[in-house]
Write a protein that binds this DNA or RNA. Structure first.
Lengths: 169, 169
DNA sequence: GTTCCCATGTAACGGGTTACATGATTGA
DNA sequence: TCAATCATGTAACCCGTTACATGGGAAC
């Protein structure tokens, strides 16, 4: 049920149309909470019906600009502060590790080395992203940087673990 | 589409009934790939129809013991070695971080410290698990330990990151 | 005038969760 | 005999993905 909060969170910063939101999902939230166009438009409709958003303005080409309401802000705050986030679940990488006993040691070793290389590549991609984004003083820049640092630490840890695991075999 | 591979992977070790599989999902895979009872029974039916499993034996109370076929093993091997695992997606913890600008600095700081404490608690729970499991020489023990080490490193990294992030604010 | 970008929506499908429904066997 | 455990299955619902469908406005 977090897509609604992602939408509320983005609109809390400033009003936007569904189209605008999609771009922001793609540019800043894609690694954290991806969403498709049909999902976003659907959710905007539901949130407006529920009174957490309003259509603040209508523009050309049927553009509807949504703005968060007081109830919307209250719901966002409630979610952020008073509810616990879901712990991580479902890792395809780890699921495979459980079954490495069903292939040869050589294949298992290769899998883990490959996984290390993939983590390195992702780590580098995040560093490139860090270098290419124009970081400002806005909300998204400040907190987006914290999230990116998490990604850097995560990918580094994954690569180290995979190399360690490969040595264990 | 990984539930089918989880089922194949468990049955590759030894034949089992749906009921047996559920217990194994709960005891060893719960942190990596949780599954519900209705999912497991449904998947067993589909896999048997597709010829990746067979009903090897029937027991009391309508018990059906499933065994993996050669095609099943081939599919498991193909998935494990020749396909790429999905990279991590959707972190509710990080989604919230993006929106910490919409609450006070004090609340943002508290959230991150709380997150650090939650990571510590999960880390300790994993250590307890490590101490309580009877580790043998079987496939699941060897590779399960690698997965558990990942969890330990992950939770440690999360706690460190959250404390670092709290200091940034 | 044609191509890009802006802009919104619907439909079909698949996977996951929860709840419902049923019943046999074992052991205290 | 009663409770716990073994054992299988179905139905409804929600969420996410992919594909389809449509059209206005701006710039060249």
């Amino acid at each position: 049920m977090s897509l609604r909060h992602a939408v509320l969170g983005l609109l809390a910063e400033r009003p936007a149309s569904g189209y605008d939101l999609m771009k922001r999902f793609e540019s800043s939230l894609s690694n954290v909470w991806p969403a498709t166009q049909s999902q976003v438009y659907g959710e905007l409709g539901k949130l407006a019906t529920a009174g957490l958003l309003t259509v603040a303005a209508e523009g050309p080409r049927g553009r509807k600009e949504y703005a968060i309401t007081e109830e919307g802000r209250a719901e966002l705050h409630h979610w952020l502060i008073e509810t616990e986030p879901e712990r991580f679940r479902r890792s395809e990488v780890l699921l495979r590790v459980f079954f490495l006993g069903s292939v040869s040691r050589f294949e298992a070793h290769t899998y883990l080395e490959l996984e290390a290389a993939r983590s390195d590549r992702f780590h580098e991609a995040l560093k490139d992203l860090e270098g290419s984004v124009e970081w400002g003083d806005d909300q998204m820049s400040v907190y987006g940087r914290l999230a990116l640092e998490y990604g850097l630490r995560q990918t580094a840890m994954q690569a180290e673990w995979a190399r360690w695991a490969a040595r264990q075999i």
